[in-house]
Design a protein around this nucleic acid. Sequence first.
DNA 1: ATGCAAATGCAAACTATTTGCAATAAGGAA
DNA 2: TTCCTTATTGCAAATAGTTTGCATTTGCAT
Lengths: 142, 142
Amino acid sequence: MATPLDSDDLLSALRKAGARITKPRKLIIQILADKGDEHPDAMEIFRRAVRQDSRISLPTVYRTLKMLEEHGAIQRHAFVDGRSRYEPADGPHHDHLIDMDTGAVIEFQSEKIERLQEEIARELGYEIVHHRLELYGRKTKV
Amino acid sequence: MATPLDSDDLLSALRKAGARITKPRKLIIQILADKGDEHPDAMEIFRRAVRQDSRISLPTVYRTLKMLEEHGAIQRHAFVDGRSRYEPADGPHHDHLIDMDTGAVIEFQSEKIERLQEEIARELGYEIVHHRLELYGRKTKV
DNA sequence: ATGCAAATGCAAACTATTTGCAATAAGGAA
DNA sequence: TTCCTTATTGCAAATAGTTTGCATTTGCAT
């Protein structure tokens, strides 16, 4: 199982792309690599960045995210709420459970489901290259 | 494989919701139920509607889509390109296997996977409202 | 046929994201 | 280190997709 890209991996992705390592970029990468809260959207990344450097701008956040995405260093997810959420790429494969009330994204993985998918594809004469599974739900009353 | 809801099903979904069957709504539903091109977005639905009745407005398209979605009559999909695409909901849920070479979409359904999903959600303290599973694959060599 | 609430069309508002441009700063060369 | 070039930045304004306020129209129960 692969380890998610960390701060240094994201930085070298930029270097490999011939991009300059600027202060805003370092900050954004630091936030993306932070294991705290997963799948932040652009605005959330911006808010956290501002806390460390009030000069940073939202367009720069978007530009950096786009650049990292184009170089495969981070992954962009589109959920039904309209905005995009980001996470470092190449983590272990996982699927998402989206809390419909709060928008929280919970990761999970199930070996069984993965195997069932392979099986279904095989029956249909296919080989799975990649898949995406999203569950949308609400917290059960206690 | 389940049969997608047709024009009449969508209309009765509206009636059951106590909504009026207006001319714009009939038109939009007709377009949604049309088996021709799958997963149109709001603008595409609007363009097609205008061809039949130039008086129709984009907000009405959005309002109708939202209403149908809220009543489970159609399903909204969010892709990375930012806009939402719609399709008539199936009675029993179906998932998609996308042929990466031809773009063909194969529908399938697995009771086992559905049950595993419920189980996983329950363990996480959630109740699934709906889900989306997409497999991307290639035909296995014969 | 008539009345009234629901639905419509228009314009304008909103949200998420992108772009033009002058000012700034990264980082290689001297 | 200092200088120079050019990528990158921040700002403001533009776009794209979607939603909302409001006066007018229309479905449909009576």
